[in-house]
Design a protein around this nucleic acid. Structure first.
Lengths: 217, 217
DNA sequence: AACGCACAATACTCATCAGTATGGAACCGC
DNA sequence: GCGGTTCCATACTGATGAGTATTGTGCGTT
């Protein structure tokens, strides 16, 4: 059962997923994601994506209406794989506190170390300025991530583990900080270390109202 | 005297700034910034920028070697004008605490309400992935902003106004959160309100170690 | 008045690339 | 075996836009 719930409105993809066409479609989307994550949406042409998937552009246009259509599918792919990664990280963790801690660590590590994630999400943000469907897609994904965090933070607050007057506001600020850390790592690669990761996680915990010294005092 | 010090390595522009050519060059840079801030670097062509400045593309190429050259000049323009805005906001404020508070408010308001700033900086981030000079330019600007904040935070900590064990870490996290807020406003325009602005400023203050309830207790 | 230079406009080149038209191959149902 | 459909490859079109070559204009100096 999915913990981070995010429904990809992609009925067409689901209908085809078992067929030959569905397999090629998935292959094209994965190729698109891989190349977009290295060079950005405008830095990759459709011939390259098709070649990466082992076909030519004519085939790509059989499966997708346009490059924009493919970009949207690559985004949906990203949202699914990100969510799966979080779910897998939590698959054997029951304690809500532990789950929140684990999620924070996985997320921060992704922000620091996953350059593909960084490039891809940055392209989403930039293109979202002029693409409302892209904005809606990201917002929907982001909302599901936020609800997940809020749920865990409220549980931890009920257990007295953290002291936060407004869980939603704290989660909003924490997630904003996380995006900012992801950005900062682009310009300061030297922060991509285990030590810095730990410090950043601790900082995010403080935003959520967990202060180690207050608890141990 | 500049408070936020950031030296734009732009000797050629300074040498010409009083001349007819210098005026046109500045006009072209301002036009480039205005259009880039609405439609992104790739969403504007050079004919449009030249027309906006009242000339044609031939003239633009007299002043600039390439579109990339113009993009870099537009970035330098942005860094100068941002710094000037902060300096103006602080021009009559002496108290370090007041200065920090004022800076935070101006910065958060910019993040929430200034769509041009949002679009332009997002373009910088996206293009920086593959442009080292752009990365260095932003990093230099960002470092100067960060040093400024760290100075004020250390002063406030010395005065006992805030309780922060690691001013640099706190400023890093606060600035990261600020960039994240700017991004969030793209997807959730409804947070661009005076009330939300105040809540966000309060949250950033908490990251810096200022907790109103602790002081009043 | 003539010349040289700075600045600008015009016309053009060329590369790039999204998208389309057309034809071929494979598969499936009858 | 044949026809229809699906999926794919090939060749092509057309738009776009950065950048360049050439020409024109205005200004300052001699």
């Amino acid at each position: 059962m999915s913990i981070v719930r995010f429904v990809v409105n992609n009925a067409a993809a689901k209908k085809l997923s078992g067929t030959r066409a569905g397999k090629m479609r998935s292959e094209l989307v994965a190729s698109a994601f891989a190349l977009f994550s290295q060079r950005g949406f405008d830095g990759v042409n459709l011939d390259e994506i098709a070649a990466h998937a082992g076909v030519t552009k004519g085939s790509l246009y059989w499966h997708f209406n346009s490059k924009r259509d493919l970009i949207h599918a690559a985004c949906a792919y990203y949202y699914r794989t990100y969510q799966r990664r979080i779910n897998e990280a939590l698959s054997n963790v029951i304690d809500p506190w532990e789950r929140l801690d684990r999620t924070l660590r996985v997320a921060v590590r992704t922000c620091l170390m996953d350059q593909q994630n960084r490039v891809f999400t940055m392209e989403i943000f930039t293109f979202s300025v002029h693409d409302e469907a892209l904005r809606r897609g990201w917002q929907q994904f982001y909302d599901s991530v936020r609800e997940f965090y809020i749920g865990l933070v409220k549980t931890a607050a009920s257990a007295g583990r953290i002291h936060v007057s407004d869980p939603e506001q704290a989660v909003n600020l924490m997630l904003a900080a996380m995006e900012g850390v992801k950005l900062r790592a682009l310009f300061e690669p030297e922060i991509c270390s285990a030590q810095e990761e730990a410090r950043i996680v601790a900082g995010l915990w403080e935003i959520l109202g967990y202060r180690p010294e207050a608890v141990h005092a």
